[in-house]
C-alpha cells in the first residue's frame, strides 16, 4: 500500500513537471502585455464619479496616511461649496505603492491602477501634478458617488435628496 502511495505521489509530481513541457511562463515584456491581477497596486490615479465630476474632495486623508509623505494637496472650494483639490501632487520618486492612500480614501477617488513601469531622466519629472493624475473614468468602482451619500447640499442636489435621507425638517412645526 505504502509503496503504491509513494509511486503515485512521485507520478503526480512528475506529471506536474511534464505538464509544463512545451509551455513558456516567461513573458517577453514589454513586447507582450502583462495580464495583471485585478488588485495590482500600480501608479495611483485620481478618478471621476459616474457623473463625470472629480471624486476627490481634498479631505487630506491620503496625505496624512502616506508613509513616505509623497502626497501634497491644497483644498479649494467651488462656488457651489463643493470641495476639490486645487493642487494635487504625488512624488513618485518617493511613492512605495503601498496602497494606504487608496484604503484611506473615503470617496474612492485615489485608486492604484495597473501602470507600474515608468522611468524618467530627472527626479523632478516624477512629481505628477493633478492634470497628470486625474483620469476621465471611474476606475475600479463604476457606481460610487460620495455626494449621493453625504448629507451636504450642492448645486443640483438639495437637502434630503441624497440616498437614505428624509426630507428637510420643518423646524417651525410644533406638531407632535
Amino acid at each position: 500500500m505504502r509503496v503504491w502511495r509513494n509511486i503515485s505521489e512521485l507520478g503526480a509530481g512528475l506529471w506536474t513537471t511534464l505538464r509544463q513541457l512545451g509551455r513558456t511562463s516567461t513573458v517577453s515584456y514589454p513586447e507582450e502585455p502583462l495580464n495583471l491581477p485585478p488588485r495590482w497596486r500600480g501608479r495611483p490615479v485620481l478618478t471621476r464619479d459616474p457623473d463625470g465630476d472629480e471624486r476627490c474632495v481634498a479631505c487630506q486623508l491620503c496625505s496624512a496616511v502616506c508613509p513616505t509623505r509623497c502626497i501634497e494637496l491644497q483644498a479649494g472650494e467651488r462656488p457651489d461649496t463643493r470641495r476639490y483639490p486645487l493642487t494635487f501632487r504625488i512624488n513618485f520618486s518617493r511613492c512605495i505603492f503601498c496602497g494606504l492612500c487608496e484604503e484611506a480614501c473615503p470617496t474612492l477617488a485615489i485608486q492604484l491602477l495597473d501602470e507600474f513601469a515608468f522611468s524618467k531622466e530627472h527626479h523632478a519629472d516624477f512629481i505628477y501634478e493633478k492634470e497628470a493624475l486625474l483620469i476621465d473614468g471611474t476606475g475600479k468602482h463604476p457606481h460610487y458617488n460620495f455626494y449621493r451619500h453625504s448629507g451636504v447640499a450642492l448645486q443640483g442636489k438639495d437637502k434630503g435628496e441624497g440616498i437614505n435621507e428624509k426630507a428637510p425638517v420643518n423646524v417651525r412645526s410644533n406638531l407632535p
Binding site: L86, T87, I90, N91, H123, A124, I127
Partner: peptide, 15 residues
C-alpha cells in the same frame, strides 16, 4: 509652490 513647472529648476517640497 503650486506647480513645479512654474517653480522652474527648484524642487517642490514634496521632492
Amino acid at each position: 509652490v503650486l506647480h513645479s513647472a512654474v517653480h522652474g529648476s527648484g524642487f517642490p517640497e514634496a521632492a
